[in-house]
C-alpha cells in the first residue's frame, strides 16, 4: 500500500510494542548489547562506533538503559529504565520526517526507518520523546 510522507496510518490492524517489566529490570544492559549485535550486521547499515579504542568511544544504539534514583516516603531506591522505540500511536519521528524514511507500518503499528530515503537531517532524533532514535554520521570517501 501507499503511505503519506509525514503522516501516520489512519488505523493499524494491530499495535505491536515491546513489553518491559520495570519491576524486574536490574539494569544489566543485556538487551542493549544484544540488540546492537543482532542488528549491526542484520539490516540496512551497521550500528557503527567512533573511537572504538580511542579517548571517548561513542556509537549508535537502538536502546539504552537509564538509571534514576527515587525517593518514596523517605525510602530511597534506584529504578532502571530501558528506553527503546515505543512505536508510539502518534509517532513524532514519523510526522516530522520530510522524506518518508521514518514510517509506521499499517499492518502492526511498528515504526521503521528506510535508510534509502534518509537524508540524515536528524529531525526524528530531536522529535523522539524517549531519546530512542540515534544518528550515526559516516564520511563516505
Amino acid at each position: 500500500m501507499d503511505i503519506d510522507v509525514t503522516s501516520l496510518p489512519t488505523r493499524t490492524e494491530k499495535k505491536l510494542g515491546l513489553v518491559i517489566d520495570l519491576d524486574v529490570c536490574v539494569g544489566c544492559q543485556a538487551c542493549v548489547v544484544s540488540c546492537k549485535s543482532w542488528n549491526t550486521g542484520g539490516y540496512g547499515a551497521p550500528l557503527a562506533d567512533t573511537e572504538p579504542y580511542g579517548d571517548t568511544p561513542s556509537g549508535a544504539w537502538l536502546n539504552r538503559v537509564h538509571s534514576y534514583e527515587t525517593e518514596n516516603y523517605g525510602q530511597t531506591g534506584v529504578v532502571h529504565f530501558p528506553k527503546s522505540c515505543l512505536h508510539c500511536d502518534d509517532a513524532p519521528c514519523v510526522t516530522v520526517c520530510p522524506t518518508g524514511a521514518s514510517w509506521k507500518r499499517s499492518e502492526d503499528g511498528i515504526v521503521l526507518v528506510d535508510e534509502n530515503k534518509c537524508m540524515g537531517c536528524g529531525l526524528c532524533a530531536w522529535a523522539c520523546p524517549y531519546g530512542a532514535r540515534e544518528m550515526f554520521h559516516r564520511q563516505v570517501s
Binding site: S37, T40, G41, G42, A45, D49, E51, R138
Partner: peptide, 15 residues
C-alpha cells in the same frame, strides 16, 4: 592497527 571507526557487520548489511 587500531581502527578509528568500527562498523561491525558492515559486510553483511546492504549499505
Amino acid at each position: 592497527p587500531v581502527a578509528s571507526q568500527l562498523r561491525y557487520g558492515s559486510e553483511w548489511t546492504s549499505t
